[in-house]
Nucleic acid binder design. Structure first.
Lengths: 193, 193
DNA sequence: TAGTAGTGAGACAGGTCTGTCTCACCTCTA
DNA sequence: TAGAGGTGAGACAGACCTGTCTCACTACTA
């Protein structure tokens, strides 16, 4: 990326804001802090993002896209559906153990912008529904549609709860117990039931 | 409560701050807003709580105490352990459906104050561990200690995930699916296995 | 080379934040 | 009634917030 590349600067702002939002939260992270850390002019930021809220939405959508791409790669391998679900839990286990894990940015966004209809709220719902749909389509290979939706919602709850426990310093227990429960539920819901 | 009652004013500040924190978040709710809504002097607030952070801890601890008292009442009834667990899920179902449900204040506090060692972080961990211990001691009536701890952690994850889904507008599915999964896990872990 | 379009830097405005301080008042007791 | 301890109200300080604006500079094109 060349310093004069406008789109390069834009992405650099998104990346920098992501790190700061993740570490300190959304309201607690000021625009001045973001532009200082990213080493860009304030006008550069405001020309790309009309407001802080729109920057937050951009950061969330960008992280959702990266998340999707990583799970896409896992899904390409030709393994049974149980193992595909297992790989999603493995991905989360690695995440929980990573040194700069600070919990789920989307859950945090929901905490700070809990007003339904707010663009940030909607961005969170998009990401969570995307993960649920992904698991549901995997599960539909091995169980009826209605059952798959219910199981996918359950797995999503386990993942969200595990992420919260991991943030509270109980990562290993969260990994072990959520995986065990998930595999048990999937096995018990297997066609023909 | 008489207007001149100091402790009355103190509790009134806590109650008012709770409503505002729940609705708009911690950083987004200013001290000025709290004292205006509670109709008390700023000095009154600062005499009772040396800083906003300590007010937040007080609000969290007070809500945790209320939560515990409500669950204590449920636990007194002499019913099998499965039903005691079921009652905890019922309690959450009612909460999710209540008109001013805005998600879990403790989870939101974790989102805004995610620094381990921070008093607010510790207050959140206290509450979540308290709920986990409560479920664990119920489960120990029907399964070995180690198993009860693991199942309690799983139930806690389901509850936390269900709370998140409920905040995203999927309360009914969260209630149904989390309860079904929880009951299945408890039944499958029943002694003698 | 000269002109032009676009970008970066930082001052600035107006508001809000937390927390402090002073002072008037109220109530209770001697 | 007079004095004293404690409380409420609001001004104030200093920092920080988001978002705007001006101006200098850079790079590209004719």
């Amino acid at each position: 990326m060349t310093p004069s590349s406008a789109s390069g600067k834009r992405q650099h702002v998104v990346d920098t804001a992501y790190v700061l939002f993740k570490r300190a939260g959304f309201h607690a992270t000021g625009i001045d802090r973001i532009i200082a850390e990213a080493d860009v002019a304030k006008m550069t930021m405001y020309r790309h993002f009309p407001s802080k809220d729109e920057l937050i939405v951009e950061v969330l959508d960008y992280r959702a896209m990266r998340f999707d791409r990583q799970l896409d790669r896992l899904a390409q391998e030709d393994v049974p559906p149980e193992q595909k679900i297992g790989k999603i839990f493995d991905w989360h286990a690695r995440w929980f153990r990573s040194p700069d894990f600070h919990g789920c940015l989307f859950a945090h966004a929901l905490a700070e912008f809990g007003d339904p209809g707010h663009p940030i709220f909607e961005a969170v719902v998009r990401q969570k529904n995307g993960l649920k749909r992904r698991m549901q389509s995997i599960l539909e290979e091995m169980m009826p549609h209605g059952c798959a939706e219910s199981v996918a919602a359950t797995l999503l709850m386990l993942i969200e709860g595990a992420t919260l426990l991991a943030q509270m310093g109980q990562a290993e227990a969260a990994i072990r117990d959520s995986r065990k429960a998930a595999m048990g539920i999937v096995a018990a819901s297997r066609r023909p039931q």
